[in-house]
Design a protein around this nucleic acid. Structure first.
Length: 215
DNA sequence: GTCGTAACGGTTGAC
DNA sequence: GGGTCAACCGTTACG
C-alpha cells in the first residue's frame, strides 16, 4: 500500500483501467495532483503515465523483460568475414562503415566497433567455420514484443521526441497502441491492423485484446 | 501546494 | 533449468 492508501504491486504496472482513468480525468481537465489523490496513485506515477500518453498516445506500459535482438546475425558475420578476407588490414570501424554503406545493416542494427572486433577475433579467425544456420526468425524476441519489427520500433521511439528519464524510461517503442485500441474501437482506414498480433501477455495490451469483446 | 524527475527496490523475459 | 542482464514498473523524496 502506498502513502495515499492505494494498493500496488511493486514492479508491476497499474491495471489498464486505472491507467485509462488517469488519462480520462486529465482530459477532463482534472489536475494531476487531484487525479493522484482521487485514484490513490502516486503523483509521480500519474506524471509518468500522462507524459507517456502525450508522447506516444498510448496508455499502455512498456515491454518488461527480454533482451535486445542480436545484431551479429550469421549474415552479418559472414559479410564481416568476407570483408576481412578480401582486405586483412581493414579496421573494425571501416567494416562498420561498409556494413552501413552496403546496406547490410542499418543504423539501428549495425554492430558496434567492439562487437565487430570480437567477431574478428572469435569467428573470423576460426578457419573453415561456416556461419550457423539461422535457427529461428530474425530478431524473433523483439518481433514478438514489437510486431512492426525492432528497427521500426526504434525509429518510432526515436521519432517520439525521446525524453530521458531517471531509470531509462526513454525506450517506449510499444507506444503503438492508443486508447481506441484498448477500447477495441475500429481503427481509421489508413491504419492497417497487425495480421500477427503479439502473443498474449499477463498484463498490458495483450490481456486487453484477450478479454475485450470483439465488435 | 504542485509538478518533474532521480533514485530505489522490485518484476519480467530473452539469452 | 537456473543465472545473468537489461528492459520495465510504481513509489518515494527532493528541488
Amino acid at each position: 500500500m502506498n502513502q495515499l492508501g492505494g494498493l500496488f504491486v511493486n514492479g508491476r504496472p497499474l491495471p489498464n483501467a486505472v491507467r485509462q482513468r488517469i488519462v480520462e480525468l486529465a482530459q477532463l481537465g482534472i489536475r494531476p495532483c487531484n487525479i493522484s489523490r482521487q485514484l490513490r496513485v502516486s503523483h509521480g506515477c500519474v506524471s509518468k503515465i500522462l507524459a507517456r500518453f502525450n508522447e506516444t498516445g498510448s496508455i499502455l506500459p512498456g515491454a518488461i523483460g527480454g533482451s535486445k535482438p542480436r545484431v551479429t546475425t550469421p549474415k552479418v558475420v559472414a559479410y564481416i568475414r568476407d570483408l576481412k578476407l578480401k582486405d586483412p588490414g581493414i579496421f573494425a570501424w571501416e567494416i562498420r562503415d561498409r556494413l552501413l554503406s552496403d546496406g547490410v545493416c542499418d543504423k539501428f542494427n549495425v554492430p558496434s566497433v567492439s562487437s565487430i572486433s570480437r567477431i574478428l577475433r572469435n569467428k573470423v579467425n576460426q578457419a573453415g567455420q561456416q556461419p550457423q544456420p539461422q535457427a529461428g526468425p530474425q530478431h524473433g524476441a523483439y518481433h514478438q514484443l514489437y510486431p512492426y519489427g525492432y528497427a521500426a520500433a526504434a525509429a518510432a521511439a526515436a521519432a517520439a521526441a525521446t525524453v530521458v528519464g531517471a531509470d531509462q524510461d526513454k525506450w517506449t517503442p510499444r507506444g503503438a497502441h492508443t486508447v481506441s485500441d484498448i477500447l477495441a474501437v475500429p481503427p481509421p482506414h489508413h491504419h492497417q491492423p497487425n495480421p500477427h498480433p503479439p502473443p498474449l501477455h499477463d498484463y498490458g495490451c495483450c490481456h486487453v485484446y484477450q478479454h475485450w469483446p470483439a465488435q
